[in-house]
């Protein structure tokens, strides 16, 4: 069983990506469990996924990397017991630190073969985010196994190069894939890299 954690800031397109990944694994015939976390007491992503035809376990009202860490571990155990999936995709809140989630999954006694973090950077809001929360964004990206530059379909001229060079400069060893989760542009490259 493999676990994927989608890391990235609020509004970066994690839920859209989650749906695409779920579809891809369904097509491959793999049993997949989705776990979505929202920091607000009111969860909406679960409804979004349901509206699009996916069933997901929703953990609202806190962050699974800190305040809901215990809840995450219980949820994972229940998923293993009830669904026994081959793939678990976890979408933490956009205010979570994915490396912390990874640590929690490691010690949750579900014994995954591997845990991957997919970092999602939003090209549209990149400049604003870096201006305001560079340190936090860097913390979100630093433990990613690969980084997706999302929303490339709406990138302005030169924006992709700029964002890519910023990320490459800081994380030279990480694969960087420009994608559009919405239009599925370049997602095949991501799929190839996934188990």
């Amino acid at each position: 069983m493999y676990v994927y954690i989608l890391g990235g800031f609020l509004g970066s397109g994690k839920t859209t990506l989650l749906m695409k990944l779920a579809s891809m694994y369904t097509r491959r015939g793999l049993k997949t469990a989705l776990l979505v976390n929202e920091s607000g007491e009111i969860g909406v992503d679960g409804a979004t996924l349901k509206a699009e035809g996916y069933d997901a376990i929703e953990l609202p009202d806190g962050c699974i990397c800190c305040s809901l860490s215990g809840t995450l571990q219980s949820a994972l155990k229940n998923i293993m017991k009830d669904i026994d999936p081959e793939i678990i995709i976890i979408e933490p809140t956009g205010l979570a630190l994915p490396h912390k989630v990874k640590e929690l999954v490691k010690v949750s006694m579900i014994d995954p073969e591997e845990i991957f973090i997919i970092g999602v950077a939003d090209i549209q809001r990149f400049e604003d985010l870096i201006k305001k929360k560079e340190q936090f964004f860097s913390m979100q990206m630093k433990s990613s196994d690969f980084i997706l530059i999302n929303k490339c379909d709406i990138a302005k001229e030169g924006q992709l190069e700029e964002v890519e060079s910023w990320i490459r400069e800081r994380y030279p060893d990480k694969p960087i894939i420009p994608v559009s989760a919405k239009t599925e542009e370049n997602l095949d490259k991501l799929y190839e890299m996934m188990k």
Partner: peptide, 9 residues
């Protein structure tokens, strides 16, 4: 992490 980010939900 929410506090670290200065976020509100």
């Amino acid at each position: 992490s929410i506090e670290m980010a200065g976020g509100t939900a």
